[in-house]
Design a protein around this nucleic acid. Structure first.
Length: 742
DNA sequence: GACCTGCTGCGGCTTG
């Protein structure tokens, strides 16, 4: 960014917008010693000052987005900030709200604009003071805003009567989620109670398709949202993908158990050795995908420090660690007084500012291109290059190695993701869900707010013009009937909806304010013996494989009500993969790119020697099986189908084949079906001939469709529709079915 | 075998 050495005016000669800020606000900018406003700050002034438009401010982390929103907002409030809350800021994290509170307080202090924060850790005294004399800016979480509706329902309109601005921070973190849907509903309900709209400002990291973000910010009128984008542009990127070989796990089955070995296996030591050698002495983030791996690598690196008689530089950071430990680690990284690297899960992907780091390490397959991009954004900010090192382990092949291992799908998927990252593509946020679980919450909340509502009013408020616009009147009636049967609702003689006994209990517990569920632990049982518990927040199928307690198991049955999963030891030789080929849902585009890499000959320059070897093996397997020419191959008693499509298509095909009585297992990009090839091809041909079914009909074999918090109260058919909209792609699956038969 | 986020009112205690 260039500076204006000839001028001490932060607005610069070209800026007319700066002069439209309140004199006191301009003075604050001068006292900060800023040479000029950043592009995004400049661009935001006029649209926010006018106060008639919704705005999205999109720029990379630490680009001054908060100030961009609040310089003009404070200019508007500088003369008079009283009477009611005048601006609401919604943040996804308490820590972020605390950060922003400190920053805003400095700006607002001289302007006599009160700043209040409101979340679970704020004392009741502070909250009571705001309720007594509401004024200025309120920083709040979606959950605390929910609590305000339920606890202060009748006082809400007065509390917010003079509200002029709503700011949503980290907008991208809300899009497509239950929590985001809850926030949309709460903001809509604020406007309903004020009987007017309030302009919204969304702050976000750079998003690919801005129209999705705009539609999220103002449902139904996304096209009218003003977009202010300050893409600082991709700087230089230094990239390396390092391959490692790992002993095949197939040798170890539950029948022939061994003593657990001490410490991590050799292969992790190799990865650890390189991490230690390259990261020590500087500041870095190591993303390790799971809490278990975070602990493993943090421990391994700490011991290397001890061995070298160095003070420890490596600390773990994940959601199960205490707040104190996490804050200590964050502070150490930010202080920059001595070298510190944090080994973390997604905790450090967004939110609080830890300053920029020298490099990013990713151990294992990245969850998605967009998260890779987000992680990369943490490195090399001040003009320097971003550095990304990817560490990938593939199993040593044996005579019984399953096809996905031979195909090195983890390595190839990672290369595909890096290639897509380099072309600046990344996955759009999820869309299409109905969010019935959050509709349960919002309906109960609406009733609690007003003491009772008519069904027609609720439909208008939540569905017709609210965030649940895709729910039809007929569906809403069925939905209400279902909630009535489950005693969440009751109806008075004049037709008013009231809370039923179960609804009353739900709403009166503080856990009701969050739209997302705490992960439920399932009890794992094998041969009548309880092995332990494990959290499941993903669909679970009979026949699925999992690893627990260092052993491999196959799911025999799922008892959703009792939260019990029955297991049997996985048969020897049928153990498919050492670790998941990717976490989360893989996009069509990534799998298409994988096929191109298998079929191609190019050697990406960022691969090390071992990774090149593994890629060569992958391509040799692809050639040997002639997968460039055919998508169905038989191997022993199994048939492998390669749709080269994303998880939604793979999952849909698996369910469709299961519905025809076949035993199907999905292994990353591959569907493995038991039986002769002719049967599988026959089944696929029959599917194509029948044509695509209604997506809901395929959910018959899904054991636990109720994944979101209140899904258990949602009528089965509506739940099936929500599930299909989130996880299935019938059109895509039938297109692929036609292709693989050619 | 993914990960992350959030939470009120009140009773009972100590301390100034």
């Amino acid at each position: 960014m260039s500076s204006h050495p000839s001028s001490s005016d932060p607005g610069g000669a070209a800026s007319s917008a700066f002069h439209r800020l309140h004199p006191q606000v301009r003075r604050w900018v001068w006292t900060q010693g800023w040479k000029e406003l950043r592009g995004i700050q400049e661009a935001a002034i006029v649209p926010i000052l006018e106060g008639t438009q919704d705005v999205i401010l999109s720029a990379s982390t630490a680009s001054g987005k908060t100030e961009a929103a609040f310089l003009p907002i404070c200019s508007r409030l500088a003369e008079d900030a009283g009477g009611s809350v005048r601006a609401i800021y919604v943040g996804p994290l308490k820590a972020l709200i605390n950060d922003q509170f400190e920053r805003l307080d400095g700006l607002c202090d001289g302007l006599h604009i009160p700043v209040h924060r409101w979340h679970g850790d704020v004392s009741q005294g502070h909250k009571a003071r705001l309720l007594q004399s509401p004024a200025g800016i309120l920083l709040i979480t979606p959950e605390s805003l929910e609590a305000l509706f339920i606890r202060q329902g009748s006082a809400l309109a007065g509390l917010f009567s003079g509200l002029e601005h709503i700011v949503i921070d980290e907008l991208h973190a809300f899009i497509g989620t239950e929590r985001g849907c809850q926030l949309q509903s709460l903001l809509h309900r604020v406007e309903l109670s004020l009987r007017r709209t309030v302009p919204r400002v969304g702050l976000s990291a750079t998003l690919g398709d801005m129209s999705l973000a705009a539609e999220f910010l103002r449902p139904g009128a996304g096209a009218k949202v003003r977009l202010c984008n300050s893409d600082s542009g991709g700087g230089e990127l230094l990239l390396q993908l390092r391959g490692y070989r790992k002993r095949a796990p197939d040798a170890r089955t539950p029948e022939e158990d061994e003593e657990p070995t001490d410490g991590p296996p050799e292969d992790e030591h190799d990865v650890g050795a390189h991490l230690f050698k390259t990261l020590r002495g500087t500041h870095n983030l190591v993303f390790a995908n799971s809490r278990a791996n975070v602990e493993l690598y943090a421990d391994l690196l700490r011991r290397r420090c001890e061995d070298a008689r160095l003070p420890n530089e490596f600390f773990p950071h994940h959601g199960n660690l205490s707040k104190e430990l996490r804050e200590e680690a964050e502070a150490a990284l930010k202080a920059k007084q001595r070298p510190v690297s944090l080994v973390c899960t997604t905790t450090l992907e967004m939110g609080i500012d830890v300053g920029s780091v020298q490099s990013i390490a990713q151990v294992g397959v990245p969850p998605s291109v967009s998260s890779l991009r987000q992680r990369l954004g943490r490195s090399g900010r001040k003009g320097g290059p971003s550095v990304l090192r990817l560490y990938l382990q593939e199993a040593e092949l044996t005579s019984t190695s399953p096809l996905p291992d031979q195909l090195r799908v983890r390595l190839v998927q990672s290369v595909a993701m890096l290639e897509l990252l380099l072309t600046n593509w990344f996955e759009p946020p999820a869309s299409g869900a109905f969010h019935f679980s959050t509709l349960v919450q919002q309906l109960l909340s609406l009733i609690a707010q007003h003491g009772g509502v008519k069904a027609g009013e609720a439909f208008l408020a939540l569905c017709h013009e609210g965030p649940f616009a895709r729910v039809s009147r007929e569906d809403f009636v069925r939905f209400l009937r279902g909630l009535g049967q489950r005693e969440l609702l009751s109806q008075s003689s004049d037709g008013t909806l009231l809370l039923g006994s179960v609804g009353e209990r739900l709403v009166n517990h503080y856990s009701f304010y969050a739209a997302f569920a705490s992960v439920e632990e399932f009890r794992l049982v094998a041969g009548g013996r309880t092995l332990g518990t494990m959290p499941f927040d993903q669909p679970l199928f009979v026949g699925a494989y999992l690893i627990f307690g260092g052993r491999r198991w196959r799911v025999l049955a799922v008892q959703g009500d009792e939260k019990v999963v029955e297991l049997e030891p996985a048969p020897a030789g049928r153990v498919p993969v050492f670790e998941p080929t990717g976490v989360g849902r893989v996009h069509d585009r990534v799998r298409e790119q994988m096929r191109a890499i298998y079929a191609g000959e190019g050697l990406p320059r960022y691969l090390d020697a071992r990774a090149l070897e593994l890629l060569a093996e992958a391509r040799a397997t692809f050639q040997r099986w002639r997968l460039g020419e055919r998508s169905i191959v038989a191997s022993g008693m199994e048939v492998h189908v390669f749709p080269w499509a994303g998880d939604a298509v793979v999952h849909t095909l698996a369910l469709a084949l299961q519905a025809r009585g076949l035993s199907v297992q999905t292994l990353g990009p591959v569907l493995s079906v038991a039986g002769p090839q002719a049967d599988v091809e026959g089944a696929l041909r029959a599917l194509v001939a029948e044509g695509p079914p209604r997506a809901e009909s395929l959910t018959r074999h899904v054991e636990n469709m109720a994944l979101e918090k209140h899904d258990g109260f949602v009528p089965e058919d509506l739940l099936a529709r929500d599930y299909a909209a989130r996880y299935l792609d019938v059109e895509g699956a039938w297109r692929v079915a036609r292709q693989v038969l050619q």
